[in-house]
Structure formats: C-alpha cells, structure tokens
Computed example of a mutant assay.
Amino acid sequence: MDNHAGSATSLDSQQFIKKYGPWALVVGASHGLGAEFARQLAALGFNCALLSRRPAVLDELKQELQTNFGIEALVIGVDLMEPNAIETIVEQVGAREIGLLVFNAGAPPFTEHFLTASAAQWAGFVRMNTETVYHCCHHFGAQMVARKRGGIILVGSHAAFGGTKKLALYTATKGFILNLGESLWAEWQQHNVDVLNLVIGSTDTPTMRAHMAAHGMPIPDDLPTAQQIVPLGLDALGSVPTLVHPDDLDLAEGELSRGLQRRDHVLESTEISAKFIGD
C-alpha cells in the first residue's frame, strides 16, 4: 500500500470511531509504524495527536493528514526519556477526548553489554519503556474506563518473550510492556475498553535501516513493512487475543496462535489469582 493511500484494514470506520474516537494519540509518530498508524487512523476519520521528540517532522505529517483526510491534528514535541514527559503530554492534549492510545516508542535497542553504560545512562531508556508507558495508560485509560469505551495498542517486540545477550534492558522493559498490556486487557474488558499488544519482529522502518547500516548489515528482502503490520493491530483490537504476533499469519492447520495461547494463560492466571486476591 502506498504511504498516502489510506487505511488497508477491513474496518467499518463509523463503528471504529464510535468506539475509539474522536481523537487518537499516537506516541512515536514521526516515522515508521507510528506515522503509518497516524495515516491509517486519519483515513478512518480520526483526529490525531502526534507525539515524538521531533516536532518539525510531525508538522509535515500534520499538514499531510489535514490535507489528505480533512481531520484535525495536533503536534506534541516531547522526549519520552525525560522525567516530566507525562506532564507535558497531559497539558498539551488538554480537554481533547483520546479514545485510542497507540504507544509506539520507536527508540532502537541499546545493543550494549549491561555494564558498558552506567546506570544513569540507562535511566532514560528504562523510563521511556516503563514509567512513561504506565503513566499514559493510567491517565488516558482512566478516562476510557469512565466513558465505558476506548482502546489501547501497545507496540512491543518479540524480545519481550525472553532475555538476550547485549539486550538486557531492552528485553526486560519490553517484557514489562507486554505484561502490563495483558493485565489491563483482563481488568478492563468489563468496562468495554480494549487493550492489545502488537508484538513485532524485525520490520522495515527507517530506524531499523539506520541500525543495520550502522552495523554494516544488509537489509533483508523479506522484512515486513509498516503498511503491512499496522492493519494487523487495528483489525485485532477488540477481538479475542491479548496480543498479535506476525508469526501467527503463517500457522499450520490446527495450530494455536501465540495470541490465543497467551490469552488462555492470562485467563487461567487471573482465575487462579482471584482465589487469593479477589476479582
């Protein structure tokens, strides 16, 4: 799909906006998956609050969305690694009704041995992938629960499923996001608020290309694109699984998807825990 061609999903735009509109907050919207989420949501008729640490790039995207789709757009320039990021986000959003939060923090993994950097140097990265995520979910999720409608998509990584050498804090914080999203999925179903983890592998984005080029590595021909990945998340929001994994597209007949496996785990764990901590 061409970057400017609009949504590639099979969604009914009126029903989707009714549940998740009128505004979508897209965190990490300057390029790659975040920019594509903004384009496809704008094509569905959403007003878009665009957030990244590069407001000049967002200004261009804002003009594109307003021109092509006739929606309203807001630019929020903020560094998610900074301690006051959530205060800036809340202030800039103001009274706008955020019905859909897409958290797509696009910083590349720090491919370093754990002790190569100081604890202070790691702090901003950890803050972005933990504190800023849960503060956004808490603030905007509370409004959604009160309204009895809304949705959150947390764009994560397959790194969340286990540790890897030279990726200690990347895998750890991606695991945090995955478990946070699944827990909120279980808590907020009864409030008609949907939460989905969009778990991606290597994807052809500007960030990935820059990272591989810096390491002298060629770009594989079969990398999925943002235009292919985004519809997976939008189509699955509000359906059965707690997560969507690209590997689920190539399942053998009768094989249970990762999303359904994780859903069953969350439901079983919730049922067991309720015996000790209540519903």
Rank of each mutant, 00 (worst) to 15 (best):
W122A: 02
W122K: 10
W122H: 06
A123L: 07
A123E: 05
G124Y: 08
G124C: 07
F125L: 04
V126G: 08
V126K: 08
R127M: 07
M128G: 01
M128D: 12
N129L: 14
N129D: 15
N129K: 06
T130P: 02
E131Y: 10
E131N: 07
T132M: 08
T132H: 08
V133E: 11
V133F: 02
Y134F: 13
H135D: 11
H135G: 03
C137F: 09
C137N: 09
C137D: 14
C137K: 10
H138N: 14
H138R: 12
F140D: 10
F140M: 10
G141E: 10
A142H: 06
M144G: 00
A146L: 14
A146C: 12
R147S: 14
R147M: 12
K148S: 14
R149E: 01
R149N: 13
G150R: 00
G151A: 04
I152Q: 01
I152F: 02
I152E: 00
I153A: 05
I153P: 01
I153Q: 12
V155I: 09
S157I: 06
S157W: 08
H158A: 12
H158W: 05
A159K: 14
A159S: 15
A159D: 07
A160M: 14
F161Q: 11
F161H: 15
G162M: 05
G162H: 07
G162N: 02
G162V: 02
G163D: 00
T164K: 15
T164I: 05
K165V: 08
K165N: 09
L167C: 04
L167R: 08
A168L: 11
Y170T: 09
Y170D: 01
T171E: 06
T171Q: 09
T171W: 03
A172S: 15
A172W: 12
T173N: 10
T173C: 05
G175A: 09
G175C: 07
F176P: 00
I177Q: 14
I177D: 00
I177W: 04
L178A: 13
L180G: 06
E182M: 04
E182W: 07
S183G: 14
S183K: 08
L184R: 07
W185N: 09
W185Q: 05
